[in-house]
Structure formats: C-alpha cells, structure tokens
Computed example of a mutant assay.
Amino acid sequence: MIAEFGIFFLILTLLFSSLGFLSPLLSWANKKFVYISQEQISVLNFFFTLLSFLCLTYSFISSDFSLLVVSSNSNTELPFIYKITGVWGNHEGSILLWLLVMTFFGFLFSLQRTKEKNIKKNSLCIQNTLIFLICLFVIFTSNPFDRIFPPEIEGSDLNPLLQDPGLIIHPPLLYLGYVGFSIVYSISLAVLIFNFKSETFVKVLKPWVFASWTFLTLGIGLGSWWAYYELGWGGFWFWDPVENASLLPWLTASALLHTIIISGKKKLLLKWTLLLSVITFTLSLLGTFLVRSGVLISVHAFANDPSRGVFILLLLLAVCSVGLFFYVKRGTYFKQRKSINVISKEGAISLNNVFMLTLSFTILLGTIYPLISSVFFNT
C-alpha cells in the first residue's frame, strides 16, 4: 500500500508542476480563471515529491521485496544505513532523488525575498516546467514503485562498491550541485525570455551559483576520495565517463563563479554570466545522459535501458537549444558597454572563461571519442 501512495504522490507532483506553465496560459485566456501562484506550486511540488521519496525509503527499510527496485538492491541482512543508501544506489531511486532535489531548490527559491518579483515568478515557471518533464521521465520510464508478482522471499545484495560510508553522502552532495544549477538556468532563461533589461538579476542569481558550486565541489571531492581507496585507481582521478561528467559542469561553474562576482560589483561580463549559466546546466544534463543511456562504459554507470537515454537526450537538446536561442536573440542588451582591458581583472576572467570552455570541450571530446570512433570508424 505504501508503494501505491508513493506513485500517487508522484502523480500529484506531475499534475501540480504542469500548472507551472498551464496556469499563466489559462489565466491569459480566461481572466476569470483562479490563478495559483508559482510559489504555491513550488511548495506543493516539493511536499508531494518528499512524501513519495519517503515512501520509497520506507519500502527499503521494511524490505518490501514486492517492489522490483527493493528486491534488486537490498536484502534483510543489509545494515540499516545501507538500506537507506540503497534508495539512491540504483537508477530509479537516484532519478527520484534528482526530482526531489530539483523541487527542493524550487521550494527554497520560492521563499527567497527579492524586489524582482517578475524575475522570481517567471523563474519558478521555468523551474516547475523542468520539474514536470523530469516527473514524466520518472513515472513513465523509471518508476521506482513497479511491483513484481510473486514477490521475492529475499532480495539481492546492494553493489558492494556502494556499501561504503563515503557513498552515503557523496550522491546527495553531487545531486545538490548538479541539480542546483537548474534554478540558475531557470533564472537566466527567465531574464532572457521575458526580456528583463536590468542588471539586478545578478543579485538574484548569485547565491544559487555559490551554493550549487559548493555542493558540486564537495561531492566531487568526496567521490575522488572514495575512488582513491575503494576502486584502487592509484590516484584521486581517473579517465572515467561518470567522473568526467561531473567535472564538466564544475569547470564551467567555476568560471561562472568568478564571472558573477565581477558582474555583481561592476555590472560587467553580464553576457558571460548568462551564457555560462545555460552551459553549466546543459552539461549537468549531458552528464546524466552519459551515465544513464548506456552509450559509454563506466564502473558505476546506470546503463540499464537506452530508451531512457533518448528521453534525457531530448530534454538535453531542448534545454540547450532554448537557452542558446534566447541568449543569441535577447543577449544583445547585455552587450559590453565599454571595452575591457586585457591586462585587468575583468580581462583575466574573460580569458579564463575561454580557457575553461576550451578545457571542457576537450574533456568532453575525449570522453565521447570511443562512441565517435565506434560509429564512424567501426573500432
């Protein structure tokens, strides 16, 4: 029965998140339509997703082997703490965690006090639309509440590599970084789509860039430490697609972090701030695609079903194309009004941005080269 409640709460999240983009349309079409605010939608999205996640957690703790995801990743002898980590030690549970973190950032942003009410409202509209798309993905391709009949008497063991203290907190930290950039993307896209011709958006954006970058840095650092002693790679890093996938957005986020400081103080490099915001979240989605599509081999990729990768690829293309389209179309307003001396702090940061983007592209090319080679050179 708990599983049924879990999927019910997910459906409620899907319905309310759809109001994120439907409410403004219905309100515009019919002035008598009772409008539900984006803040209210964000609160409800987080509340119902949290309840769904708690239902899945309870299923792991109680060893409900009638659920496929529980029987495949847990057993009665598994220590309690690893039953908890088993919730996100698989594709379905980790995607639900992704959704939870996305709704969490939407919820936190809805509580932020700002004078830029229009930016806030439209940013939440975009964030709730992203939540709707991810919720669709969870329900229709990665449902963690799928039952099996007859239920298993005993479950399987959790991947031994995941039975480690470092992996208790590593994935949540990484997701807080990865998914945190969704709100950065939403704010930047709202500025571009709705043509907010003001530099004040930087104040709204800045704390979320800092928070997401911090979580991503901690997550990567903890993951590197785990890989050092658990996998025996002989170092803190290795050329692994999953590790590279987390490094790519970190590089562009680091560039964004330095850029937004200048944007906030001197109202310079605003176009760089918007561009890097779009690119960073795009790379986060790209990393998710590489991990979950099965196109590349990794020691800890969720290569289960290529059809799932198709959905993420479509979402990736939509996020990237929409972001870049409006950046090209509306970003001209934020064009530099005065030239920047190369031998200055602003000039150095601009050069650093170019370097970081070049480095990211190089790593990306090296990561996907085996795929390119197999397609074009049959090797």
Rank of each mutant, 00 (worst) to 15 (best):
Ile119Asn: 08
Tyr175Phe: 10
Lys329Thr: 05
Tyr58Met: 12
Thr273Met: 09
Ala318Asn: 07
Val138Arg: 02
Tyr58Arg: 14
Gly234Met: 04
Ile2Gln: 13
Ser63Thr: 11
Arg147Pro: 00
Leu268Asn: 12
Pro370Thr: 05
Ile134Tyr: 05
Leu96Arg: 01
Ile262Gln: 06
Lys265His: 07
Lys206Leu: 14
Ser142Leu: 14
Val295Ala: 14
Leu136Glu: 05
Gly223Lys: 08
Leu359Ile: 14
Ser71Arg: 11
Glu116Val: 04
Ser17Met: 06
Gly180Glu: 00
Ile349Asn: 10
Thr114Phe: 04
Ser71His: 04
Ser263Ala: 15
Ser188Asp: 03
Met356Ser: 02
Asp146Glu: 14
Ser110Ala: 14
Leu286Arg: 02
Glu199Thr: 12
Phe376Tyr: 14
Gly180Leu: 01
Gly287Leu: 06
Ile297Leu: 13
Lys265Val: 09
Tyr333Thr: 01
Ser284Gln: 03
Pro172Ile: 05
Ile36Met: 11
Ser182Tyr: 00
Thr379Trp: 08
Thr273Arg: 07
Trp250Cys: 04
Ala227Trp: 09
Ile261Lys: 12
Tyr82Ser: 10
Lys206Pro: 00
Pro306Trp: 05
Leu313Phe: 13
Thr362His: 03
Leu108Phe: 08
Tyr185Thr: 02
Ser42Lys: 05
Phe5Ala: 13
Tyr327Ile: 01
Ile131Lys: 02
Ser23Glu: 13
Leu174Met: 15
Ala245Leu: 10
Gly287Asn: 11
Thr13Gln: 04
Ile61Val: 12
Arg147Trp: 00
Ile168Gly: 06
Ala303Arg: 04
Ser212Phe: 02
Lys197Gln: 15
Lys267Gly: 01
Ile95Thr: 09
Ala301Trp: 05
Leu268Gly: 07
Met102Asp: 06
Leu19Ser: 04
Leu248Thr: 08
Ile2Asp: 13
Asp64Ser: 11
Thr103Arg: 06
Phe46Ala: 07
Lys31Trp: 11
Trp88Asn: 08
Phe289Trp: 15
Lys329Val: 07
Leu247Gly: 07
Ser110Gln: 05
Phe236Ser: 08
Val202Asn: 01
Phe181Met: 11
Leu50Val: 03
Lys83Asp: 03
Val328Trp: 09
Pro24Thr: 07
Ile153Trp: 06
Ile81Ala: 14
Asn122Glu: 14
Leu22Gly: 01
Phe201Lys: 10
Ser254Tyr: 04
Gly20Gln: 00
Met102Arg: 01
Phe196Gly: 04
Cys135Ser: 15
Leu96Ala: 02
Phe104Cys: 04
Thr367Gly: 09
Ser142Pro: 06
Phe132Arg: 00
Phe194Tyr: 15
Met102Lys: 06
Phe215Ser: 03
Thr288Asn: 11
Pro79Phe: 08
Gly177Phe: 10
Val69Phe: 04
Ile119Ser: 03
Ser62Asn: 12
Glu92Gly: 08
Gly20Arg: 00
Gln336His: 12
Leu274Ile: 01
